[in-house]
Design a protein around this nucleic acid. Structure first.
Length: 302
DNA sequence: AAAGATGGCAACCGCTGCCAC
DNA sequence: GGTGGCAGCGGTTGCCATCTT
């Protein structure tokens, strides 16, 4: 680990030492000082805190270190499928408002979510040569990625859980909150964004539930006799009209997923995500797309 | 095995909004 | 109303680990 840099602010007419600010990675000693000081005096007033704690750091740096790393309730490790789903959902409503998104993921920081978006989500957009802010890519997330996450969420839920306990799965609760948030709170309405995906009006939400809700859509949106996904809907949202030819066409897949639900495939304005080289070269790079034992191979995803 | 490329993440920077004076 | 200080936010950078050739 590189030693922290020292920044000197010239021409202030005070002792140089007073302006020697450390930069770069934090040492264990600095962390200990910061944690100890906050434990004794609380957080806030970061410039004064830095001074009184004897840290040669800016108040900003102290605040960032505390909020993003040292705070006791910070979660470490990979984002769960539930958290990923929530990020995708909330980002579709809130855009790059990372702190707002982070408020809905306890223990996760805005920085972590931002990094996740840039390194994981935008990577897929780059590989597909689609603008990550484009409707096309957002649709790809909704059509292709989010259903996978939903399925992962169900698969990773405890096999011993009963229907009753399942209703109290914390991630499902978060998901429910997100759905409620997007469907109820007008603050998050955005005319230019797709309408909220209301997949949770019931206490429990999972892949099969989402599919059940989809199955309860109006007749025009319901599955046909072949159990194919309706060509002009996904998640209950009409994609003809405003989306037009720029939107997705959901391929009617003959294969079925779990619970007799159709496995989703999709095409994005020239990007056939169901079987193109692009798909095999990019989407399956992420473990997200490792679909439980190569199920894609059977259903024609790769 | 080594060098270069790439990815992931922690930290920094600059801007904005709020508030006290 | 103007100004300065502070906190917070989002974009960007830089370092290190891992991967690829």
């Amino acid at each position: 680990m590189a030693m922290p840099n020292i920044t000197q602010t010239p021409s202030h007419g005070k002792e140089d030492e007073e302006f020697e600010m450390r930069r770069g990675p934090w040492t264990v000693e600095e962390d200990t000082r910061l944690v100890h000081y906050i434990a004794c005096h609380g957080e806030g007033r970061w410039n004064l805190l830095a001074k009184f704690a004897g840290l040669k750091r800016t108040g900003k740096s102290c605040r960032l270190r505390w909020l993003n790393y040292l705070k006791p309730d910070i979660k470490r490790g990979n984002l769960s499928p539930q958290e990923q789903f929530l990020i995708l959902e909330l980002h579709s409503k809130l855009g790059n408002r990372w702190s707002k998104i982070a408020q809905h993921l306890p223990g996760r920081t805005d920085n972590e979510i931002k990094n996740y978006w840039r390194t994981r989500v935008q990577k897929q957009a780059r590989h597909l040569k689609i603008d990550s802010n484009s409707k096309t890519f957002l649709d790809a997330l909704r059509c292709f990625w989010m259903p996978r996450l939903l399925e992962q969420m169900e698969q990773t839920s405890s096999p011993s859980s009963t229907p009753n306990t399942r209703h109290h799965h914390p991630a499902m609760e978060s998901l429910q909150n997100a759905a409620i948030l997007s469907s109820v709170n007008p603050k998050f309405d955005n005319e230019e964004k797709p309408r909220p995906v209301v997949i949770s009006s019931s206490p429990a939400v999972c892949y099969s539930d989402a599919m059940r809700i989809i199955s309860q859509l109006p007749a025009a949106a319901a599955f046909d006799d072949n159990n194919s996904f309706p060509s002009n809907y996904y998640y209950g949202e009409e994609i003809s009209g405003s989306h037009g030819m720029e939107g997705f066409r959901l391929a009617a897949m003959s294969a079925t997923g779990r619970h007799g639900c159709p496995t989703l495939g999709c095409q994005v304005a020239g990007y056939d995500l169901t079987g193109s080289d692009v798909a095999s070269a990019t989407w399956d790079m992420d473990e997200l797309w490792q679909f439980q034992g190569g199920k894609e191979l059977e259903s024609g995803f790769v």
